[in-house]
Computed example of a mutant assay.
Amino acid sequence: MNARVTTAEGLRRTNLAEVLRLVHHGGPRSRAAITALTGLNRSTVSDLVSRLVAAGLVEEQLPDPTRRVGRPSPIVTPSADVVAIGINPEIDAVEIGAVSLGGAVRLRERIEADAPDVDAAVAIAASVVQRWRDDALGGCRIVGIGVAVPGLVSADHGLVRLAPHLEWRDADIAAPLRAALGLPVVVGNDASLGARAERLFGAAREHEDVVYLNGGASGIGGGLILHGALIGGAGGYAGEWGQTGATVADAEDRAAPGGVLEDEVNRGRLLRSVGVTAADDAALSAVLGSSPGPEAGEEVARQRRILAATLGNAVNVLNPSMIVLGGFLAVLRDIDAAEFDDEVRRRSLGPAAEGLVLASAALGADRLLIGAADAAFDLLLADPLA
């Protein structure tokens, strides 16, 4: 093959990837909008869209003719039948979701499990995915699996170096999942993948500089986005907000001597304060919002104060335009969002907090599954016709 043909084919594949990424992350777009956004000419866009349609990756629909003047431009939408699987093993359950191109959760299941080891997590996930393949996803193309782990994951190898609450050390979950399901597997930190989901599909879509904190059964993790890029650090371990020192008012407020943030701001402590042993975030929110008593009120106020101080430090160091809270941290904020947001700004330097927006995760319980699945879509988005 001569160099000119090779270059032309490479350029076409690059343009195909750009168009597919536009409709995956940005939602349905008209051909005219794609032409404007990419700078390509109309005939090129028409050819690219036709190729993506033929590959089953997108569909075209005519817009409502009553809402437009002149000749309508077809709307390009990502195919709901192209899916990736997101998996989130936690200390109390394994959650599995099937996420379509475009970021919509098509199916999800939560299988309760007590601190599953790698073998148990793989067995649970493989059983659910195989059942879906035989039934609800029978006509779908599954492109890969993303795993969101509450721990430190090596950016180079996808190895779970340490997930302390699951007691995983140097654990390889990717290989057994590939063997069980015959699909490509990527593994990442759960909170970093949550940050990715909120940046692409959720509360932070309009922001380039974002601090994200996620509170789950295993503790607190986080993600950092600067100038639109997810920051992983030298080894991929950045964002462990839960392991930072906690700011408390006095010694009596400390949950444990030398405790870190996730010891002080802690989902288990909230559950115990309301007298329950287990509840998802929605149930926890409902209980805390129904006058649960003075003990719970004091614990909530304590945790909100410590969390606000941590976020004030983040504002002063990183100067984000947005802070997003997920999981039980969002529950804490939403008890009185205005008061909490004001407290964060009060604990920040004035100029650094100018224009700061705080929000709870817009994707709710789906955020980690969507982030994990989006990572699994990366190979497809890089070269749609590979």
Rank of each mutant, 00 (worst) to 15 (best):
G194E: 02
E206C: 01
R269L: 04
A286T: 11
D119K: 15
T66N: 08
L356Q: 12
E295T: 12
E208Y: 02
D342M: 07
D172P: 09
R178W: 01
G371D: 12
A17C: 09
A175E: 11
V128Y: 00
P176Q: 11
A256C: 08
R42L: 06
D172G: 07
P28V: 05
I75Q: 11
D47S: 13
A120Y: 00
P63M: 03
R304P: 04
R13T: 08
S273R: 07
P351I: 05
L307H: 08
D114Q: 13
V143M: 05
A163D: 07
V23L: 08
E198S: 10
N189V: 00
A32Q: 12
H207C: 00
I75D: 05
G326H: 07
Q303S: 15
V211A: 03
L332P: 15
A98W: 06
N214G: 12
L40V: 03
A125L: 13
V248D: 03
N189R: 01
F340E: 14
A113Q: 11
V315N: 00
S290L: 06
R347I: 04
A120L: 10
G158D: 14
S291M: 07
A338E: 14
I306E: 14
F201K: 14
L288M: 09
G259D: 04
E343T: 12
T310F: 02
L379W: 03
P257K: 07
A249G: 10
A301K: 14
T77L: 09
A98I: 08
E206L: 11
G355L: 06
N2W: 05
L230S: 12
G188T: 02
A246E: 08
S360M: 04
A330S: 14
Y237F: 15
A80C: 00
V248M: 09
R110W: 05
A163L: 06
L380D: 13
G235L: 07
E95M: 10
T14Q: 09
A255L: 10
P63V: 01
V149W: 01
D383N: 15
E9S: 09
G188P: 00
G182H: 10
R71V: 08
T14R: 14
A180Q: 11
S79A: 13
P184R: 01
A17G: 14
L356R: 14
L162A: 12
A286K: 12
V315P: 00
A365T: 09
S50V: 03
A121C: 07
A120Q: 13
V118G: 13
A8Q: 12
A249R: 15
L358F: 03
A36F: 02
G275E: 09
L101S: 09
D253F: 06
G97F: 01
S50W: 01
G219A: 10
W132C: 03
E298I: 00
S127H: 08
G289V: 03
G327I: 02
N88P: 00
G182R: 13
R71H: 06
R169Q: 07
A309Q: 13
A84I: 01
E264N: 11
A125G: 08
Y212N: 00
T44P: 02
F377L: 03
Y237D: 10
L37I: 07
L356F: 04
D366V: 04
S291Y: 03
A113F: 01
S127Q: 12
I173P: 11
F201E: 06
A3Q: 10
S30K: 15
